Amino acid sequence: MHRGFELFIDKTAFEKSYYDLAIEAGKKRYDNAKVNIRSTLDSFISKNGKLDGSKMQANWFPQVSADIFISHSHQDEDLAILLSEYFHQTFGLTVFIDSCIWGYANDLLKLIDDEYCLNSSGETYNYTKRNYSTSHIHMMLSTALTMMIDKSECVLFLNTPNSITPNEVITKTKSPWIYSEIAMTSLVRQKPLNEYRVKKITESFSEGGEIRKGLDFEYAINTDHLTSISKDILLRWKKEWDYEGKKYTPDYSKHALDILYSITSKNNRYEYFEK
């Protein structure tokens, strides 16, 4: 990761006609790129009869190349897809959205649980075995997400009421995945730009299925290390990209993210954002 941003935006920032078309185009693009997940566990069983966790992670959560990693609530998947399509169409950038390119962790967990964790009745799961399987699958996903954050040049946290508990003095989230992703953005090494801009490809998942009523967690998260941006910055970014692109075409070589970094740098800031 080179830079991280906290984006405050909702679907009203875009025209309704564009919103629908962009989501449709984005979903179609990701459907074409989505990993073809194997439906059986046979290929992951090693010679000693044990499941090969490394092979399983590589198959279900493969590392891909992307310019931007979007951290978002599962409820904001359409908004994340909209933004990814906007960035793709406007700046030629590729965006990682895990649910759009990886297999769902819950689907993999169900395969394993049905094969290894059912009680003899076939109607319930063994509590101990299921805890064991869940810990392994969630660790695979968490590791893969951390690797993608480290591999992506830019991380964008989509801050909405679905991801952050509103009206809290201490910022909190109920999503363990958002908590993990934001924590990782403050821990992974910040790499120079020359380590990026060689490869490319596509996108995310955020938090999985419903949690049963009564089982409710929340995590305090710190986003102070992320640069806050909003719709105004996206508009300025597009305007300056259009200007630079026309100015230097056809030998234009500047990267779109350079403009975003420039207009949000400490030396080039003005009062462009209010929380």
Rank of each mutant, 00 (worst) to 15 (best):
G4H: 03
G4T: 04
G4E: 05
G4P: 00
L7M: 06
I9E: 06
D10S: 05
D20R: 09
L21A: 15
Y30T: 12
Y30S: 12
D31V: 08
N32F: 08
K34C: 02
V35F: 05
V35D: 02
R38F: 12
T40I: 05
D42N: 15
K47R: 10
N48D: 15
D52V: 03
G53K: 15
G53F: 14
G53H: 15
S54I: 15
M56A: 08
F61M: 13
Q63V: 06
D67G: 02
I68P: 01
F69Y: 13
I70L: 14
H74M: 01
L79V: 14
A80R: 04
I81L: 04
L83H: 08
S84P: 06
S84W: 04
F87H: 02
T90E: 14
F91T: 04
V95M: 07
F96P: 03
G103P: 12
G103Y: 02
A105G: 11
D107R: 13
D113I: 01
D114Q: 14
E115C: 08
S120V: 14
G122A: 07
T124K: 04
K129S: 00
R130Y: 04
M139Y: 10
L141C: 10
S142P: 00
T143R: 14
L145W: 06
L145K: 03
M148H: 04
M148C: 08
S152L: 03
E153C: 00
F157G: 04
L158W: 05
L158C: 00
N162W: 09
I164S: 07
N167V: 00
I170H: 10
T171S: 15
T173K: 04
W177E: 06
W177P: 06
E181F: 02
A183Y: 05
T185Y: 08
L187M: 02
V188T: 12
Q190M: 09
L193W: 02
R197S: 12
V198W: 00
I201L: 11
T202E: 06
S206P: 03
E210P: 00
R212S: 13
D216H: 08
F217L: 13
E218D: 15
Y219E: 00
I221W: 03
N222H: 13
T223C: 13
D224K: 15
L226K: 01
L226G: 10
L226R: 02
I229D: 09
I229H: 09
R236E: 15
W237P: 01
K238H: 14
K238Q: 14
K238A: 09
Y243K: 12
E244M: 11
G245C: 06
K247R: 11
Y248K: 10
H255A: 11
D258R: 06
L260G: 02
S262G: 00
N267S: 13
Y272R: 10
F273G: 04
E274V: 11
